[in-house]
Design a protein around this nucleic acid. Sequence first.
DNA 1: AACCAGGGTGATG
DNA 2: CATCACCATGGT
Length: 278
Amino acid sequence: MTMPQNTLLSYKLNLNDIPYFDLYDTLNCGQCFRFEEVSTNNFIIIAKDKPLHITLEDNFIIFNNTSKDEFESVWLDYFDLNTDYCEIMQYLFSKDQKFKSIAQKSNGIRILKQDPWETLCSFIISQNNNIPRIKGIINRLCENFGNKIPGSEFYSFPSPETLAALTCEDLSIIRSGFRAKYIIDAALKIASNKVCLDSIYSLPLDEAAKYLMTIKGVGVKVAACTLLYGFHRLDSFPQDVWIKRAMDLLYNGADYKIFGKYAGVAQQYIFNYVRNIL
DNA sequence: AACCAGGGTGATG
DNA sequence: CATCACCATGGT
């Protein structure tokens, strides 16, 4: 992978001004898949239909080829930097004593505000799968069925309409296995407005999950991931095999409700903890 | 070679 | 309601 063309234009952010934001942990805790560390301290993230090249340098995070205006109107929101994570973390610390030592294993994880459709589709692909292969399948999905992003070598995430026109055989090129029929069912239901993603914003969490689960291949876990990462529902608590292990091990199998309205944020720190520390 | 991966479905007790 | 084989694919 080669770097996008460089210009002098960039936006530099002092990490000392932003508590609880570690880019590496935020990217690597399993919430997003379209990113790569192209060289030490250099990341390319494909989001908002464009490749974003980020450089880490001492206490600074540099958004390359990005104006101040673009940073403030797009990336501030995408990386959830407007949200007060001090308030969130204080809330979680007050809910559970053990959480503080778990959270200290990271310099900060933000819940990205990703595109709802991309998130839904990505986590349909994630089922019974591992992260490296999920990334590969998503890359092939975009390269084969997305649009080339002008001025770059990258491709956008394909729309529901594009995928709704395909068959499982068409999708065989991405080698998603039994998940192909689920991808197409999701695309069909959303392109036909049988499932309206916009209506999710006005639904309570449990009803939103049930609504998403009318799509084939979407169960409790995929719905929870979609709601947390695609709809910023911070009370949503995805439970995969790692989290179940962690809750048994660290909390004697306690219910996630102990983390209250920010359970989803707690979940990210616990996932990071068990994946990297245990 | 058997087991696992950010699980869900459908059949069966 | 709980359990369980099965689902494609690739890595260990």
